[in-house]
Simulated assay, not measured.
Amino acid sequence: MSVAPIPFATLWNDAPNEIKVAILKQASVDTLKSLLPFNQLRRFARRALRERVNDIIEDFHLDPALVLKMMDTTGTIISGSAALQAVSPRLNWKAGDVDFYCGVDVIDAVLLCFKRQSYEVVNTHPAPYAYKKFYTFGARNALPSNFEARFRANSCIENVFTLSHTPSALTINVIQSRSPASATPLAFFHSTLVMNFVSAGGVACAYPDLTLNSLGLMNFQSMPPVQHVHIRDVRAVDKYQSRGYLFVQGDEHDVTVDGIERGRTWDDPFTIKMCFRKHLKVLTGPNSTISWRTSFREYYNWGFREHAPEVLVEEDGRVVCYRNWVGPASLTMVSPPARARRIA
């Protein structure tokens, strides 16, 4: 005698809430966000995302309530491997550490939060050089009078603090931005794969079409390099390749590029954002003013021109541009190709 299958809706409705949340904790952020229009699923989706973030924090013997409160008051975010797992959980690896990014003016409050949870600073890496300021005024270059460019920004990082948990020897990193906006360094990451963050209120993914398919678009041009590619970036890419991710290069892989327009913001239609605390926003303070552009190349019949990644953010009524070098770098070929092509 055959037994009629039980409809999934019946199984779901009869399942304990803990089972529902446990199932949804394995879903990527786009799947969870797709459930928000449904009243019966919305609270489970938000709870699943919140618990996933809590699990990441607890893995490092930190109190999620205390850490998220600190993140809320200081505008600090989590990025790197931990944020990637919050966006798209993969069960075959765990983040070896967790990276907290904070604004330049709140570092003391951030470090104090971790010191109160048995973490001590064991190493500090200052930026190797200071940025140069170029103030640009007047209509000659079609820029507003409140525009300021800060080149050689060293990826917008002021200091990197490594903290160790005394009882367990686990480590976390606190990266101090050169800007009051904690998310400005993300524009200089090695690839779009890690351009994600967790804030006190939710999760954001800048390149979901790539990231959720385990792909990363390179944010430096490595074949052949005009600018030096740091071994740190090469090792980072290799680490993610060993975890099953793949990397691509060129405009044809980036759905966010429209002709020569490359500017991105965290509020544009390409970004996925999801709140897990309905009374808080994913983006707050200076982070809500950020726009950025990844690196790219323009090819000509004489060679190519390479453009650095850059980020713009509002600071004290000024629009500040950060870039790691002044202007584009070019390579002129001895014998130009028969036909020019552009594959930025």
Rank of each mutant, 00 (worst) to 15 (best):
E298D: 14
P89V: 03
V21Q: 04
I56D: 00
V104Y: 00
V67T: 04
S179G: 10
D238G: 12
T31W: 07
A149Q: 06
P225A: 07
K133I: 12
I57A: 02
R339P: 02
D97A: 08
D316V: 07
V21G: 04
M195L: 12
C102F: 02
S288C: 05
V110A: 01
S145Y: 00
Q241E: 11
L11G: 02
F296D: 01
L331G: 12
V21N: 04
T10P: 00
V203H: 01
R293E: 15
M218H: 06
E310N: 15
D97L: 05
V104G: 00
S145D: 09
R116Y: 01
K25S: 08
V282I: 09
G103H: 00
Q241W: 02
V248N: 07
N154T: 06
D55Q: 09
V248G: 10
A142N: 13
I56W: 02
E306D: 15
V237D: 00
A95G: 05
D14G: 03
T211E: 04
V104M: 06
S222V: 10
D233C: 14
L68H: 02
S79W: 04
R262Q: 09
V29N: 00
A169R: 13
G138Q: 10
E310S: 15
R43P: 00
C113G: 03
Y245R: 05
N39T: 14
Q221C: 10
E120A: 11
R323W: 01
D97V: 09
L170V: 07
Q26M: 00
F44Y: 15
R341H: 11
C275P: 04
V234L: 10
G263C: 06
F38H: 12
R140D: 09
I290D: 08
Q40E: 15
K281W: 04
I77S: 05
L217Y: 04
P167D: 13
L32E: 02
W325L: 03
V21E: 03
L170A: 14
S177H: 07
P126F: 06
D254C: 04
E310D: 15
D268C: 09
L11N: 03
A149W: 05
D316P: 03
K278G: 11
F147Q: 06
K273V: 02
T332K: 09
I343A: 08
